[in-house]
Design a protein around this nucleic acid. Structure first.
Lengths: 231, 231
DNA sequence: CAGTATCCAGTTGGATACTG
DNA sequence: CAGTATCCAACTGGATACTG
């Protein structure tokens, strides 16, 4: 039950739904392919399950999301109306990357970063067979090591050593790798600065940026002038 | 001080600012040309002045709005970052007009309707000299009559008889004229249904739809299937 | 004109625990 | 797996009045 503006304006009517906190992030997760409750949670880990449930209900009532039950397995998917939110989400992403470039310490989250990267692995660019990429965040107090494992069957994130030989390891502080992934700095600049290292087969090190292909939003050109002050 | 999502995702960082209630409507008003505090209020009449002030401050801190003071006259205008919100506002408007077509009784407001129409008068299409258009909403308990007066100098809304001869009068229920203005129904359909009448010089009656040119959002094609259930 | 000040009722959502 | 239930602290914003 989103609150109302009392305006006939289409922007106002749309925002009655869309400006509720978390709503557009849930839509983003659905667009990125999450289908189940606990998969959605992985994309919005700071959201309580009660609130996620409530938002899904609101979105379903608004006709943006469809709830699908087969047996005791529940899925959510975007309706036509929901799919048409893509231009909004993309426009918001492009604006955000251009005009809100500052990240707070709270915005950095290795799990979320790996989760997001693993969804965008370019499987075509990766050698056939099995490829494991290691990630090390030496400054973290715990859970310093992560892996992304790519096989013909798909791409997985691990927070325990999968035991496979690692083709290349990325050693970086969390902020730098996050900024590289957002497209705020490029791989070459991060490498030169020394805050990011690539270790492993030289060929794999050179190929890595193609395996972890940046999204369209990350590739958005930045404003030439200095950015806006942080919110 | 918008609340934080704790995500590096550009969509999340942008929405920390943009999903605060009223924010995007204030931006819309600035895009439509309002520059002063009380002009902005006219576009968001249900917003308290305290809240409008707070939102303008937040937008200014975020670098989206610039506050300009000359003497004791204060203006607000969009910065480059603010101007680049246009694609978002437009995408939201197009989505809203397609997927949130139901209007509640609370969404209807003659003052807001006339205010919005007067901003979109196509001065080129209107005859030279002075043109007055009357509006009558017979079902309203009070303030049934309104006028839009177009001169070489500009376009004004009046809620008292300006005393000029009226070229054409629109007599309608408020909902129908609102729907026509939103592009939910066209003039011809509304006229045929009888819920809207045009009175006055026949030539002016035929020309009226060109004087009150629909916005791009209103001209957005609608989904062919039946619309979504109301929020 | 361009806001600020104050107050408070209502809502929101975070934390935590629990269930079929 | 897919949520509900409960509690409560914090925040939000509406109403109203006032100011330089």
């Amino acid at each position: 039950m989103p609150s109302e503006y009392g305006q006939f304006c289409p922007v106002a009517k749309a925002m009655e739904l869309l400006d509720e906190r978390w709503t557009l992030l849930v839509v983003r997760e659905l667009m990125l392919g999450s289908r189940h409750f606990n998969a959605l949670r992985r994309g919005v880990p700071r959201m309580s399950p009660a609130l996620l449930s409530k938002r899904l209900q609101t979105l379903a009532r608004a006709g943006v999301v469809e709830r699908w039950q087969e047996g005791n397995r529940v899925s959510y998917r975007l309706t036509d109306a929901g799919l048409e939110l893509a231009p909004i989400v993309e426009a918001v992403g492009r604006w955000g990357v251009r005009w809100v470039p500052e990240l707070g310490d709270r915005d950095l989250d290795p799990h979320l970063l790996l989760w997001d990267m693993h969804r965008n692995v370019d499987a075509e660019a990766v050698p056939d067979g099995r490829t494991a990429i290691g990630f090390e965040f030496p400054e973290l107090p715990a859970q310093r090591c992560w892996w992304i494992v790519i096989t013909g069957d798909g791409v997985d994130v691990c927070d325990v050593d999968p035991g496979f030989p690692v083709r290349v390891t990325v050693r970086s502080d969390l902020r730098t790798l996050t900024r590289v992934w957002r497209g705020d700095v490029d791989w070459a600049t991060a490498l030169r600065s020394g805050s990011l290292e690539l270790l492993g087969e030289p060929q794999a090190c050179r190929a890595l940026p193609r395996w972890l292909a940046l999204t369209d939003v990350a590739r958005t050109p930045r404003p030439s002038r200095r950015p806006v002050v942080a919110v």
